[in-house]
């Protein structure tokens, strides 16, 4: 016996009721439950849909879907960082490496100058303001988009909601690094390393808050074959 459209809708609601927020995971779990319910019905044809659903759900163990959700989030975060790394690598190969080098030289010049302390404050100030502004805008746009669409995608959530936090973490670690390595003018090689790190910080902030959100549709299609099926 096959499940009806209504049963499938009920299973989607069931996954949502059990804290599976994201459509990609809901779809996979719905198909799994549906297959199992159909197999259960072959053995016990008189069992109601709700009872068969409960029987199938029990096989996920005492934690229900939560283990699957946690691991899915971890796996997708890994994938997000893979995309980030892929974009970052482009800035260390021709022709974009020229921009990265120019940026590093610029930072080096400012760090060895008499204005180095002012520069650091201004640099982090601008970066923090920009990251906050971009995070706010991305969040706002994401909320609007989420309202318009019924489906939530985990990668989209990472791209639009988590990226801002990532920018702040970067700034925090950079400030810690600089606090522990002053005075700068005494160690030439250290200044070179810090100049490159500042460039990487700028690039990562730019990639995570500007570039990847702009490419989000492309990345979502690459990650979820079903994304196209749902948005067309």
């Amino acid at each position: 016996m096959e499940l009806s459209e209504r049963n499938i809708e009920n299973l989607y609601q069931f996954t949502r009721d059990h804290f599976v927020e994201y459509y990609d995971l809901q779809t996979e779990l719905v198909d799994h439950l549906a297959n199992d319910i159909e197999a259960i019905w072959e053995q016990e044809p008189n069992l109601s849909f709700v009872n068969a659903r409960e029987k199938a759900f029990k096989k996920f163990g005492v934690y229900g879907f939560s283990d699957v959700v946690i691991h899915r989030e971890r796996a997708m975060t890994k994938r997000y960082f893979k995309y980030l790394w892929r974009e970052l690598k482009i800035w260390f190969s021709l022709p974009k490496i020229i921009i990265t080098l120019a940026l590093s030289i610029c930072f080096y010049t400012l760090l060895v100058s008499q204005f180095s302390e002012y520069f650091i404050y201004i640099f982090y100030g601008i970066l923090a303001v920009w990251c906050t502004y971009k995070s706010f805008m991305l969040n706002r746009n994401f909320k609007k988009k989420s309202k318009a669409s019924k489906q939530k995608w985990l990668l989209e959530d990472l791209i639009f909601k988590q990226a801002g936090g990532f920018g702040m973490v970067l700034i925090y670690y950079n400030i810690n690094l600089l606090n522990s390595t002053t005075p700068l003018h005494q160690t030439k090689y250290l200044v070179i390393v810090i100049s490159v790190l500042l460039s990487v910080t700028c690039l990562l902030a730019y990639i995570s808050l500007e570039l990847i959100p702009k490419k989000s549709e492309e990345l979502l299609e690459e990650t979820y074959p079903e994304y196209h099926l749902q948005t067309t």
Binding site: K59, V68, H71, R72, A75, K78
Partner: peptide, 15 residues
């Protein structure tokens, strides 16, 4: 078990 299968599949996919 379902609770072990999907995390493994998702991990292999992410890798």
């Amino acid at each position: 078990t379902e609770g072990a299968l999907y995390p493994s599949l998702h991990k292999l996919e992410a890798e």
